[in-house]
Nucleic acid binder design. Structure first.
Lengths: 354, 354
DNA sequence: GTTAGCACTCTATGGTTTTGAGTGCTAGCA
DNA sequence: TGCTAGCACTCAAAACCATAGAGTGCTAAC
């Protein structure tokens, strides 16, 4: 960061341009800045400063006789230096808390709620991806008979997260059969990492003559969980992006196309530098061609392991402060739920300083 | 339908206009029709006919010196009279069959797959709503302990449809406790209609001292299923609508706004006349203001009772024949799954006429 | 009833002009 | 040296105008 050395006046002007542009989404002129931010210097002076800021790559002019518009570099500088991490408004906190205070929690539901609340509170499109659960350990697998030929397979993992699915088989599933099968299945799968199952285990099946069909179903569930496109993606509020004036039919199309593509979304949420807390991508090159858009993303963890990411997609001139606060707050709420497993669902209100 | 009395020449012309408009999405002129559809009469004659068709409300002219564009009335006439119920292409049938031949089926999954395949095959946006399950009968409720304080509640209904959810309670959930609770809960809820539970049952609780907490959790799950916004809505392919030339930023906005609003979607899929098989809504007034859009919807049933609707939202000039075929085919596939419960998952290939 | 022919209409296209916001530059001032 | 007033210059957007051509409506004749 060699160019952090902007004079304080330049900083003030740069900030003014970004703030104004965030507010009204139109090029900002020297006169405007003079009127709203400076009593002591003239617009001509500001003009000179703007000109050098442009040379430095912070600003761009749509055309010679227009005001200035922040370049991606300006947003980055803004985020790094001016972002006021003001606390969320009380009503937003209340909304989020309410979302996560409901009683019954399953992983999908938690994630979906999180995505929804992020989108609601920020008023941007939100995206959450859950990584594959390859290194999650299987604690127990339960089989519940539903009728003669079908059963519910419940997979309980070390994080206390459960997933379940109905299977249907040819064999008659009476209680006896099921409990025997259950024993065997748990003997095979219990305590193992989901990621280790892959194909290596096909051998074991041969031992399980009677339960082969059932066993295979369970295995395929496990495999599908760990393979399913490598990750699950949840999107909420996709229409929000259209509400901003920079939206065009073009941009809407490219936006929705990307939103439809899981792998692209995942790349968007990926952070370049591993040590930063929030990944912020601004500018066409970094956002897969979504012009005038920015993506802010944060990681979610269980016991220190990343299990997914949540992000917000909005216009470049988005309210970064708020977005980061929301992501941070929701993250702490979700982390609390995840890390405490299903045992403790209540969110500790005190634990939400990121 | 008093105005069904169009001369066969008028019919041919009307059909020509609709077909051409569906093809190229631009006003069609008398000359064009003459060239492509008639050898025996002149464009002037066609012009005269077009003029009367316009007077009758079937066509509109964007402006005096433009060709004709079908009015909603024309599409309706077209659907009623000209629709060729040609069978689906083999590849489409194969796609749909493949979707529903997968092994594990839960209600949400079935519905989501159905929505996805409809959107894929038609290339329009698809929407499915599942009605509240008020008159579904509870066959059995199973409780599976997950750990000390949480359990999975599995609700099995008469249709063989299951839903489940994790609950967390204060009480210690050992096997004994759970099996006792299970007995009691099934005694109370077993065989009852979900819709009858409402508040009337609060009395019963008092008998269940020990199990009160658990009981309440289960009840609230049941109630939430039957109340949850009255219905669940699934949407797939929302970006598809933008791919058609009539798309504008305006229309995209109004479209996505409606798509975000469950109640509006449900109204869209509602049919006006109870006896028709497919509800087709064309024109701004009928589509909640989505201009140039049409909605085709069909009902899905279990044992003759409507449990939901599936629909397609596309441009007015959509391929109605194909859409109806797809909805029809998917319906029969889904109905087969539903009506046979979880016992028989395989789709009878023969049952897909109508 | 049909049609050829023609006048008419109206959009779409593209060029020209005008306007005004906003800049860049320069000369003069502190 | 830094700031500023003033002014010329630039350029996009709006307003205006002209033209072309697609397509109609009408009418008179068949």
């Amino acid at each position: 960061m060699k160019e952090n050395k902007l004079s304080s006046r330049k900083q003030k002007i740069l900030r003014a341009v970004v703030d104004e542009y965030i507010r009204k989404a139109a090029p900002v002129s020297s006169g405007e800045i003079k009127a709203k931010y400076f009593d002591d210097i003239s617009s001509a002076t500001i003009r000179a400063e703007l000109s050098t800021l442009e040379d430095m790559g912070y600003l761009v002019q749509p055309h010679t006789s227009a005001g200035r518009v922040p370049a991606p570099k300006a947003y980055k500088y803004y985020v790094e230096n001016f972002l006021d991490k003001r606390p969320l408004r009380r009503q937003d906190i209340a909304k989020i808390d309410a979302t996560f205070n409901a009683k019954f929690k399953e992983i999908e539901e938690i994630v979906r709620s999180a995505a929804k609340i992020i989108s609601d509170v920020t008023n941007y499109t939100s995206v959450i991806v859950i990584k594959n659960i390859a290194n999650v350990v299987i604690k127990e697998i339960k089989l519940v008979g539903l009728d003669e030929n079908s059963a519910l397979v419940i997979i309980i993992t070390d994080g206390g997260i459960i997933r379940d699915k109905v299977i249907t088989v040819e064999s008659r599933l009476d209680d006896n059969f099921l409990s025997n099968a259950s024993l065997l299945i748990n003997k095979v799968f219990g305590g193992r990492k989901v990621g280790d199952l892959k194909s290596a285990d096909v051998e074991v099946q041969k031992e399980l003559s009677d339960f082969k069909e059932l066993f295979e179903s369970v295995l395929s569930i496990l495999l599908s969980y760990c393979e399913q496109d490598e990750a699950k993606v949840f999107v909420e509020g996709e229409s929000k992006i259209l509400e901003y004036p920079e939206a065009s039919l073009e941009s809407a199309k490219s936006f929705l196309t990307i939103i439809d593509d899981k792998s692209k979304i995942m790349e968007l949420l990926e952070k370049e530098e591993p040590d930063i807390e929030f990944s912020i991508k601004i500018g066409k090159e970094e956002t897969k061609g979504m012009d005038k858009c920015a993506v802010v993303a944060a990681s979610y963890t269980i016991n220190g392991k990343e299990i997914g990411k949540a992000g917000v997609i909005g216009p470049e001139r988005m309210d970064y402060g708020k977005v980061i606060s929301v992501l941070s707050y929701v993250r702490s709420a979700v982390n609390t739920i995840f890390n405490s497993g299903i045992k403790k669902i209540d969110i500790k209100k005190e634990e939400n300083n990121d």
